[in-house]
Design a protein around this nucleic acid. Structure first.
Lengths: 203, 203
DNA sequence: TAGATTGTTAATCGATTAACAATC
DNA sequence: TAGATTGTTAATCGATTAACAATC
């Protein structure tokens, strides 16, 4: 969709958005310099990043706060409703089912899938845990194009294959394995344990 | 500790390690080219990354699998036992308390802290949820230098301030805010919702 | 030996930063 | 007007890739 923006820039846009949404100091305008200082970045970088969106700065005053938020939300697709499903209703999967933060980005996490008989049929935060064996029908019915993999590493690739088959386009993968997906599909990985290990190596 | 390695390289080391640990095909040796193909990377990059560790390749045959794993584990500090605590015993915090993946990196998640009276005194996977008001004593007693912040965004900075004060050196932060910490302390951020939003922007 | 592989030096590429003209 | 700010072009920096000598 946004093929021209570097991923590094794209990754910073939610940071700007979060900052802007939580830092209203009453002023209608905010400059790239003020954002840069608050987030400890270069101000040119901020302007470059913001230039990928439809945001228009005004010389002398900066960006209109409200417009900038709207431009970021628009660029990040926060106004498009998208359904996401979770695969694996363990601790992490259930935590994500009830996490409220996705709605800021227009994402509804609508269901989880699992193959544990004891979990199937239950609800978490009003969202159903469904039978993994019926995942394809479920995903199709829900129109989900986004999925989050929260199963143990050894099952992750087969879950990914299934998801790809069911019409999911993008996968957020918490399992510590590299998933192979066909051209045109997208995966992002979050390895929590590795992140903590990296952190501890750095200090 | 490892101030000379680029963070980009450091971030790939756990990927190599996971791959090596799960891909034993019986062969005693593995080449950088084989790793590169499996992980879809350049082979020179793999060799450069591995060269930061104590791994020694052998011309003609590649790296001895076992030695390479050992070198990566050593470099990443998997053999040093480190205690970590979780701040915030909500869904995510509890999921991390019972997540087994940290032990691969020598990290023991030993306790969580919360200020909810109903949670204090309970256990999750045999690990205690303790009173946030006693966090400093607890962290000192446990000798934890690593912490994971799983509280709502508006509390994250004050929790970080507390942690810094209690002797924590490194923080993994799941709250979507930029934490300010003094020089010499390290923070890594994981914003799950933003990751899903980025993913959906990419497709 | 010929071929496969490492490890290193040089070249390229991409992202960040610096410089600066334009604007109000 | 002078000063502050944007947006863009040029320079720098760092990471990745290409080239290649050394090795067995």
């Amino acid at each position: 969709m946004k093929s021209d923006i570097p991923v590094t820039s794209l990754q910073r846009l939610p940071v700007y958005l979060n900052y802007l949404k939580t830092s209203g100091d009453g002023d209608q305008y905010i400059s790239s310099g003020a954002i840069a200082r608050a987030l400890d970045m270069g101000e040119v970088l901020v302007r470059k990043d913001l230039a990928y969106t439809s945001a228009q700065g005004r010389t002398r005053v900066g960006y209109k706060r409200e417009e900038l938020i709207a431009a970021l939300e628009d660029y990040l697709g926060c106004n498009d409703r998208k359904n996401a499903v979770i695969f694996g209703a363990g601790g992490l999967g259930c935590a994500l089912l009830s996490y409220g933060g996705f709605k800021n980005y227009g994402i509804d996490v609508v269901a989880a899938f699992d193959n544990d008989k004891n979990k199937i049929g239950t609800e978490v935060d009003g969202k159903p845990v469904m039978d993994a064996a019926q995942a394809c029908e479920g995903i199709a019915a829900l129109g989900a194009k986004l999925a989050v993999i929260c199963v143990p590493a050894r099952y992750a690739q087969s879950v990914a294959d299934l998801l790809i088959n069911c019409g999911v386009r993008s996968i957020l993968n918490f399992a510590p394995v590299l998933l192979k997906v066909p051209e045109g599909f997208t995966v992002r990985n979050i390895d929590v344990a590795a992140n903590l290990a990296i952190l501890s190596s750095l200090s």
